[in-house]
């Protein structure tokens, strides 16, 4: 499949570009990260030289770059002086937690968002449609972190009832795995809902617009002429066609989702990549910031690649012609 190979090549070149970009961003522009550390900790010349080597900052720029690449290929993401630990270990733990959060909220966003979007789009101009559009626009205009703050206030301070911080109850003893999973599940509720609330609005609006466009197509009249029920017309004939532009817009969605996850993790102290980045910013821990930026971006590139592949599966026209 030559097309698939071509897309793989584009993906690899994008990843390569981001790696290079990342190198220049963190190794050249901020000047000398050693000086930043030296400012906070008294270091002698010998210690600075040692740090320099550990940061890969000795030798020419080109040799630094190649050393950086080879370290990356070996999974070495550097050392954090803040955590006093290898970055790969820190990031590895956070990655799974973020993945859990993203999966949970994406499931809600995609299923509910599509259902509501199709509902509104197939009733274009009616009151229920207008109400959906207006509330979506309002939800979309809210900063994600603020929605999280409101929920923390509501469920942590005002009404109570749901855990508002962390991934599990501190110092809890679990008698079995099920209890542990339940505890995590409870902690997952508010972050997931926060993330879903804002992003669902995006999905509803995109789905609705796409469906309205599709509803005016000639083949929808054909479907009506066949004597199909309204539901069959919308779901069997409209839905799959409407999903194509929705998938095209998924690049924006994935980017928004990652941005939202960072904010949600900060508000709910969810120990994922976003919280890691936040703490790294506060502590000016560049090695962690760099690694989390790199991994997030690569993950988004891969997710976009997957969405592109899904598009090929759904649209027979592209699959053959390209």
């Amino acid at each position: 499949m030559p097309f698939f190979l071509r897309r793989i090549a584009t993906l690899s070149s994008s990843i390569f570009a981001i790696v290079t970009f990342n190198f220049f961003l963190f190794h050249i522009i901020p000047g000398d990260p050693i000086r930043l550390i030296a400012r906070t900790q008294r270091l002698n010349t010998e210690a600075i030289a040692k740090l320099r080597t550990s940061f890969g900052l000795d030798g020419s720029l080109l040799s630094q770059y190649f050393r950086y690449l080879s370290k990356l290929l070996h999974g070495d993401l550097g050392y954090s002086f803040f955590y006093k630990e290898n970055v790969s270990g820190i990031v590895g733990r956070a990655l799974g937690n973020t993945f859990l959060l993203l999966t949970a909220s994406t499931l809600i966003v995609v299923t509910c968002g599509i259902a509501i979007g199709v509902f509104a789009g197939s009733r274009q101009g009616k009151k229920s449609d207008t109400a959906t559009v207006v509330s979506s626009l309002i939800l979309w205009s809210m900063p994600t972190f603020w929605v999280g703050m409101l929920l923390v206030f509501t469920f942590g301070v005002w009404v109570g009832g749901l855990p508002i911080s962390g991934i599990s109850t501190a110092n809890a003893l679990y008698s079995n795995w099920f209890q542990y999973a339940m505890d995590i599940g409870q902690h997952l509720i508010l972050p997931t809902v926060t993330l879903a609330i804002v992003d669902i609005a995006f999905f509803i609006i995109i789905t609705r617009t796409a469906l309205i466009e599709v509803m005016s197509e000639d083949y929808m009249l054909t479907a009506r002429g066949k004597g199909l029920s309204r539901r069959t017309i919308v779901w069997r004939h409209g839905f799959r066609n409407a999903m194509l532009p929705v998938l095209t817009a998924s690049a924006l969605y994935i980017s928004a989702l990652v941005g939202g996850a960072i904010q949600v993790e900060v508000v709910f102290s969810w120990p994922g990549m976003g919280l890691l980045m936040y703490n790294a910013v506060l502590a000016r821990d560049y090695s962690v910031l760099e690694a989390s930026f790199l991994l997030t971006t690569v993950a988004v590139l891969v997710a976009n690649f997957a969405a592109d592949m899904l598009y090929r599966v759904l649209d027979p026209r592209v699959a053959v012609s390209k």
């Binding site: 901020p30 980017s255 960072i262 930026f293 971006t297």
Partner: peptide
């Protein structure tokens, strides 16, 4: 297209933290 798919917020955070 490259800047379209690269997630904006992490990049903004990285640049903001550096500059």
């Amino acid at each position: 297209d490259f800047f379209l798919v690269v997630p904006a917020l992490p990049l903004m955070i990285a640049l903001g933290a550096i500059f």
